[in-house]
Nucleic acid binder design. Structure first.
Lengths: 211, 211
DNA sequence: AGTCGTTTAAAACGATCGTTTGAAAAGAGC
DNA sequence: GCTCTTTTCAAACGATCGTTTTAAACGACT
């Protein structure tokens, strides 16, 4: 039986529990119990709970950002004037590549949920960490969007992007609640796939409108 | 010092701190210190922290829901077939009436932030409380929206509404973070009013598109 | 086998949490 | 005045938190 090592098991448990409950509501004892490691292992391998939080974000954001950077390179290499759709397509492809189809939406849920926590529960240390490590690629992405839509002001682009991120993050963050509400409301069960299929045209219409 | 003063001051402090930090990150000692009352006053007047959380939501949701119910009554009394815009307008008017203009957006921010917490940080007790007390009017509101847009399925309406709620809640929940990001990104400062003025057409376009 | 650096283990640390206690202070009714 | 209820207050409770300590177990190497 090949057992993942202690560091990986801690990261897996922490990621799952953070996405499920948030940072403050998740204790190190919950994490180490689920990971079946000793309590002190967190402080030994990561230093502190704050460092563990940063490590959880780094594990999925660093490869994601690297992939996004390469995809953006490839985009501008073959396309001198990428459209709004082109740039958004690069983002969508980057989020989905490398993840097996059958667990694609679970991974995406965790991704979105953690992203939401970064916005709404971030203390200073996490915000600073994310800004130092990933702001550059993020700014590059926003820059291409602005270039693709010269009739809109920089402000408009920025805020529309974050309105859209808000929809996605909020929806995935409270998917369980919303699903039970939808079940009681319409009587229909909603799969993640179906919700995504409604969300994408919803956001497309909003992002690209002329004002 | 009378009882109402103590109760009100606790509710004010709790509302502000919950909206700012969330439930778990806000201790009773922080609340009572800011409210300048004794620590035991919370348990004496409310029973427990959970009951205090419910009381904070009840204080602004109960009058809001009552107003919304009356506004919906008035709408159907004068308008046999209210449009999508009519129904949304009732919601917007209900959220803004009774609040002085100069503090309108602060109140709205707190409203949205608490709403976001209810979705993303709700333990069972809060979800159950909100469902028992406010689900009826909420269902009525959704019902009128569905009737106004018969070409869309019930599912579509439900999810679009929550996509829109997500944008608004997320934006207001992380307004400070987003503002500092916008400042670093575009160099422009964004007032709440300006953000709202961009958000509303953004959501209108998304909500009303035909698919 | 024996040594040395790394990792795991159990136990305890001080701090902070929500809550409870018991007595003092304040109000209300007569 | 006095009594009885309501409210405030300081102090402490047990529980849980993140973190530290100390020693045992493990692994690689000579």
């Amino acid at each position: 039986m090949t057992q993942a090592d202690t560091v990986t098991r801690i990261l897996d448990s922490a990621e799952q529990l953070f996405a499920e409950k948030g940072f403050a509501e998740t204790s190190l004892r919950m994490i180490t119990t689920r990971a079946k490691v000793n309590l002190a292992a967190v402080n030994y391998h990561f230093g502190s709970k704050k460092d563990l939080i940063q490590a959880v974000f780094a594990r999925f954001l660093t490869p994601f950002t690297q992939k996004l950077d390469k995809e953006l390179d490839a985009m501008v290499a073959t396309n001198r004037e990428p459209t709004f759709q082109d740039v958004l397509g690069v983002l969508a492809r980057t989020m989905l590549t490398g993840v097996e189809t059958h667990q694609r939406y679970n991974k995406l849920s965790v991704f979105m949920r953690l992203l939401g926590l970064a916005y709404t529960q971030a203390q200073g240390h996490l915000r600073r960490f994310l800004n130092e490590n990933y702001a550059k690629t993020y700014g590059r992405f926003i820059g291409y969007l602005k270039a693709a839509h010269p009739t809109l002001s920089s402000d408009e682009i920025f805020w529309r992007i974050h309105f859209a991120i808000g929809s996605a993050v909020f929806t995935m963050s409270s998917l369980e609640v919303l699903r039970s509400m939808a079940q009681a409301d319409t009587g229909h069960d909603a799969s993640v796939e179906r919700v995504m299929q409604m969300l994408i045209p919803f956001l497309s219409a909003a992002l690209e409108q002329e004002s």
